[in-house]
């Protein structure tokens, strides 16, 4: 190749040897769009996964409505509402973390990631308190399950309804448990991100990992946005 020949060619996009650009992509933008697309396809599989649980919930709530009303009243609405607020706050700090990464503000990025991790920890802590309460009250489905044993006299239900409440609690533990597992995995990835961000791994335009994790974290928030009314707020009004 003679020099004169090379200079007549326009500088092709993507051939500027950006170390972050993988060879199968033409441009950084294309690479970013592709990874974002992949993340969304993963989140869709997650929607289908939780969709199965929501479907089971829908059918059993229809079949055993009185049991769902009684069982839902026995879980702590105050803790559930606080946890909803905590998760919404953590979504804000996560959005701000992605924003800081886009601006290249490394210290702010680390700060907002730590804030997100702390709020995630608060959520899991409150969840643990709730689980412990349910355990003490014999509300965990299994051989020791006894719905009426810990309920105040005016909130006890007939024996058949009491045994049906175990279906609600099985769904409660399955759904909040799977959600909590997603939170724990998220917290693990957050620690990794904080460590990497500390070493300056996410300069502006190369923070796709932070952005995609943000999508995951917001998705977990959305699952809780649906779990809260479905599990905690079945029917709280004193009149039916």
């Amino acid at each position: 190749m003679s020099d004169s020949h090379a200079t007549t060619l326009p500088p092709a996009a993507g051939h500027h040897h950006d170390p972050a650009l993988l060879e199968q992509f033409d441009t950084i933008e294309q690479q970013k769009d592709a990874s974002q697309f992949g993340m969304w396809v993963f989140l869709i599989t997650e929607i289908m996964f939780f969709g199965g649980l929501f479907g089971a919930y829908l059918i059993y709530r229809n079949m055993y409505n009185p049991a769902f009303v009684a069982a839902s009243k026995s879980i702590r609405i105050d803790l559930g509402a606080i946890n909803t607020a905590v998760l919404i706050c953590s979504s804000l700090t996560m959005a701000m973390a992605v924003h800081s990464a886009a601006l290249g503000a490394r210290k702010l990025l680390i700060l907002f990631l730590i804030a997100t991790l702390v709020l995630g920890g608060v959520f899991l802590g409150i969840k643990a308190v709730e689980y412990h309460e349910k355990y003490v009250e014999h509300h965990v489905p299994g051989p020791n399950f006894d719905f009426n044993s810990s309920e105040p006299a005016d909130e006890r239900v007939p024996a058949d309804v009491a045994s049906q409440t175990s279906i609600f609690f099985a769904l409660y533990f399955a759904m909040t448990g799977m959600h909590a597992l997603h939170m724990i995995i998220g917290a693990g990835i957050l620690i990794f991100l904080i460590y990497r961000a500390w070493h300056g791994a996410y300069p502006p335009h190369h923070y796709t990992m932070v952005e995609n994790f943000g999508l995951y974290w917001h998705f977990v928030d959305i699952i809780w946005i649906f779990l809260f009314p479905l599990l905690y707020l079945v029917s709280r009004s004193p009149v039916h």
């Binding site: 609405i77 946005i225 809260f228 905690y232």
Partner: peptide, 24 residues
């Protein structure tokens, strides 16, 4: 979030789950 908690304590009959899901 506050609104959905408030609505849950009212009696709208079949409207309760619809309101809760609409807010969600």
């Amino acid at each position: 979030t506050g609104l959905t908690v408030f609505a849950a304590f009212q009696n709208f009959g079949v409207g309760n789950p619809i309101i809760a899901l609409a807010i969600a």
